[in-house]
Nucleic acid binder design. Structure first.
Lengths: 197, 197
DNA sequence: AATCACCTTACGAACGGTCGTTAGTCCGTT
DNA sequence: AACGGACTAACGACCGTTCGTAAGGTGATT
């Protein structure tokens, strides 16, 4: 299945060098073929990119599902920590996430429409998967009274901040940011259970 | 001063299309000259980029100074709100910030070293300018006891999250993220002054 | 078993374009 | 006379893409 090899190589290169910074020759050489051979499997660069994009979307969605699968077997705080830690753990090795992050941010302008469609789809899914978790925690009187949607928005922003730190600070730096950020976030949303001096 | 016109056009195009996505012909046509004329003012594309980068760094630094100038005439909370609001207000019109943000994130790989140098310099300055503000607020017993550096790190992460939202959500969406995020952040760091139910 | 047609996959060669860059020149200002 | 800034022309390199073709596998027909 050479088409898959091409997609994997393309995803990695797009993630690291961007769309314009990645040539078909570049991709082909990583696979071990010539650039013309790519046309046996794809209509062209744009087609290859779109297919990689859709693969990335699907994989991100199914991964998000997986992480939240075990949600009811653990506490609210554990779930949030898991979501943050998952981002950090995946970033270094998961080309899929790196690609997805970069292309969400700075898509090739002539494919803006299709990229945005994918991004919006993911964000909707993300929002509707996370909201019940916060809603449940409110219902159990664990959190200060606030609109659940606002909690989700703020938490997603926190996740984004960690991702951003991963991009130019690396894994170690992101961990240093995640710890106090989560601490403060949880302090900000939780009903104080133990005395603060 | 045609060199300045070129730098301004280049900054705007680099910000919107990236380094590889911006050609010298593109830049020249925006200025109203031919691409070869750029070589009367710069050694080449890389030289132009580096000069634009350094301009952007200097302007970001001086702007940060300006925003914090009036720090002692306003409250701690006002200062934080001002910092966030400043990011949102500038994003739409300030090409400098857009350029800086994009290139911090995804620099042209063959100029990685020089870009990183600039980014690290800015981050150091940002950290050492913000820390005394939090230190002072702690000293005035406005905040829960925490390491001031951790507070700064978490706050910078919050600023980054807003910037990230600006990039693919736009100004309106960023505002919707900023409001609850700031609310929760302040709740998380402040000593509770009024009762929560 | 041998032949045939067919399909997939890869390749060399080459296309028109655009890229960044260089050389040489012309013109206005100092 | 000297110089800075813009120009025309052209360079080699690389871009994405197309074409024709050759190798290999599959399956049906002889």
């Amino acid at each position: 299945m050479s088409a898959n090899k091409i997609k994997i190589a393309a995803m990695s290169l797009f993630a690291n060098y961007g769309y314009e910074g990645t040539s078909l020759a570049h991709i082909a050489s990583k696979v071990g073929i010539k650039k013309q051979s790519i046309y046996s499997h794809f209509d062209g660069k744009d087609d290859l990119f779109i297919q990689v994009l859709n693969d990335a979307l699907q994989q991100e969605l199914s991964h998000l599902h997986d992480v939240l699968m075990k949600e009811d077997t653990q506490s609210f705080n554990e779930t949030l920590h898991l979501l943050i830690q998952d981002i950090i753990d995946r970033f270094s090795n998961d080309k899929n996430m790196k690609f997805w992050l970069r292309m969400s941010f700075y898509p090739p302008m002539h494919l803006l429409e299709e990229v945005n469609k994918a991004v919006y789809f993911y964000e909707d899914e993300q929002l509707s998967l996370l909201e019940p978790i916060f809603r449940k925690a409110i219902h159990e009187n664990k959190l200060k009274k606030r609109e659940p949607e606002q909690l989700v928005i703020a938490f997603i922003a926190l996740m984004n901040a960690i991702m951003m730190e991963l991009v130019y600070g690396g894994e170690k730096r992101a961990q240093q940011v995640a710890t106090p950020s989560m601490e403060i976030f949880l302090d900000g949303i939780s009903i104080a259970s133990k005395g603060e001096e």
